[in-house]
Design a protein around this nucleic acid. Structure first.
Lengths: 138, 138
DNA sequence: ATCCTACGATGGACTTTGTCCAAGTCAAGT
DNA sequence: ACTTGACTTGGACAAAGTCCATCGTAGGAT
């Protein structure tokens, strides 16, 4: 199950009930919850947990590189526990469903020097948009 | 100068002092202002203009397809008048400077069917991140 | 040139998402 | 078990944006 928790323990992360619950909520594939969604699920397991703690904990997990921040819309940031393998995102324009995807090739290589304006370019984020089978079907 | 204003007139857009000022502010290449920045510059030309009007007008320009919304960070949306040619963005991680860039190839083609999860994929947004010459130099 | 009227502008209240802080609590080492 | 520094809490605060009732005006009609 939760190798996230295992990894965190191994890194000497001080363990508290609140942190454990947040880490447990953020487990699985194609998980992209907002902070408030994480809070809601955490409250179900540990009713006293506060919003501030969820924000703090998510921020730390991001700093540790164990969770990624994803901004697929202009609403709330989402948190993606799939930080161990590089990937991009595919988003349904209707229902907002998000899938992790792995495009072929290296998008960085597609930006010619003449289009770099002297920047040292080090990263690229790609968001594919479309309609998911569920929304298209109906 | 402002072909944006010309185009809008041609499309039967009702012209007001406020709308003209917003359209004038949004003119040029590599322009990526936030709504508040647009408002600040608009106020310099027309002191009575309200924030709500700037938001309304920007929203309409986006609906008309004359201006693009850009979300390069999790802060405010930015508005890009360069809607006539498809392009992506290159962002400086230090100072936030943004350039319009044109990558080679079609990023849509890089997403194999096996990675589409049954979605009908219709668009892709790419954000390159790096450090601009100004920030790297110092 | 003036009048009408629907469309646009206004500003203030409200919402959402997130940050900050002082005070209380607790995990983990001794 | 004690101690201590790290963690948690709740509430105040802030930034970005939306909503709405009311007022004003662009532009067609006369």
């Amino acid at each position: 199950m939760s190798d996230l928790l295992e990894r965190l323990r191994g890194r000497g992360w001080r363990m508290t009930a609140q942190r454990r619950v947040v880490a447990e909520v953020l487990d699985g594939d194609h998980v992209h919850l907002t902070a408030d969604e994480v809070h809601a699920r955490a409250v179900a397991k540990l009713p006293e947990i506060s919003r501030a703690t969820v924000y703090n904990t998510l921020g730390e997990l991001v700093s540790l590189g164990e969770v990624l921040e994803v901004a697929t819309d202009r609403r709330a940031k989402r948190y993606d526990p799939n930080a161990h393998r590089p990937h991009q995102h595919l988003v349904c324009a209707r229902c907002g469903a998000i899938r992790d995807v792995h495009p072929a090739g290296n998008p960085l290589a597609d930006l010619p020097d003449s289009e770099r304006f002297g920047f040292v370019v080090s990263a690229v984020e790609v968001t594919y948009r479309g309609v998911c089978p569920n929304c298209a079907g109906a």
